[in-house]
Computed example of a mutant assay.
Amino acid sequence: MIIQSARHPLGSWKAVLRRAQQQQQFLLRTMATATTTTITNTSIPPPPPPSSKPKSGWVKSKKVKFHVIKSTVPGKPIRTAFAVYPRGHSARAINPEALKTFHAQQIKRLDKTGARTALFSKANPDAAKPGDVLQVTTNRGGEPFAGVCLSIRRAGVDTAILLRNQLTKIGVEMWYKVYSPTVTGIEIIWRRPKRARRARLTYMRKPKHDMGNVDHLVEAWRRTRNVFTSGKGAKAGQHLGRPGKHAKGKRGR
């Protein structure tokens, strides 16, 4: 290429010199890479010795077993080309989920008896279900709130229930967290006679399916509880000022 370009007039000497510089730079690069590769190869440290404990979940075994096929000749099995390695440990067993562990710790701390967990557990046949009327008592003061359970949001320690009731002919909905320290009690007032086919009964917000006020169910539940409780009915009557035997004698006098 240099000889062919030299036959042209003097104006082509610039191209000749440019090509010569390019070839010189190419030779320098190749020489530099060759020297650097030899240096780096000599400076590679030896590999570290294999550790006894594997970093990953796979089990390292010294002897690898091969799949064997029985042959017609006794004592001479045929070894196939693929090896059979032992089953490794599960990644979930080695590294459990941190969020589930945290939820389990918080539930154990907030629900020591396990009554709240059993009240909303799917494995419990007597657990509260959507459509039942529940009453929640809090330590913030005021009367307990009772309403129809529209949905149960199961989210570990953040498990919550949505209750709906009518106050002064206005629909009111309240979210309550089951494991909250402010919630002192959750009671089942009335059970739905037939199991609901949905997990969220949002259709009960419509006037056609709305149960309305559930105070009459709460009053009936309180009456039955007072009847089956021994001694509380008489004490309540004396506290309210209802006339007893002694009161009738005083009035007769």
Rank of each mutant, 00 (worst) to 15 (best):
R192W: 01
Q23V: 07
Y85I: 13
A98Q: 12
R92T: 06
I69L: 08
S52M: 09
N213V: 02
M1E: 12
R79T: 11
K70R: 11
Q135L: 09
H239K: 15
E219T: 10
M1Q: 09
K112I: 06
A123N: 15
K177D: 02
A83L: 10
S5M: 15
T40K: 12
V16N: 03
F26W: 12
H8D: 13
D126N: 14
V148E: 07
L162I: 04
I152Y: 01
A199G: 11
G233A: 15
D111W: 01
C149I: 01
Q24F: 07
Q4D: 13
R198S: 04
V16P: 03
K235M: 12
K250C: 01
I3E: 15
P181V: 06
R223E: 13
Y176A: 00
K55S: 05
N139A: 04
I78K: 10
A98H: 03
L10F: 07
I78F: 03
K169E: 11
R253V: 07
S43F: 10
K55T: 08
L167F: 07
S90N: 06
L167V: 15
D210H: 07
V178R: 00
W190I: 02
Y176L: 03
F102E: 14
A15L: 11
G142E: 07
P9G: 15
S52L: 11
K53N: 06
P125D: 01
K208L: 14
C149G: 01
D210Y: 03
I2L: 13
G114F: 04
V136N: 01
L150R: 10
P46I: 09
T117F: 05
Q25M: 09
G185M: 09
R191H: 01
T33K: 13
A34L: 13
D111K: 04
I44Y: 06
G88L: 00
I152N: 00
I3D: 14
R251D: 00
F120I: 02
G88K: 00
L17C: 06
N165K: 07
R87L: 14
N95K: 13
R200H: 05
R79F: 15
S5G: 00
Q135A: 05
P45S: 09
K55W: 08
Y179N: 06
A196R: 01
I3L: 13
S71K: 04
M211I: 14
T38Y: 06
E219S: 08
S71M: 02
M211Q: 06
V84K: 12
I188W: 04
Q106T: 08
P48M: 08
V64T: 08
K177F: 09
G244D: 11
G11A: 14
Q105A: 15
K208N: 05
K53C: 05
I44H: 08
Y176K: 02
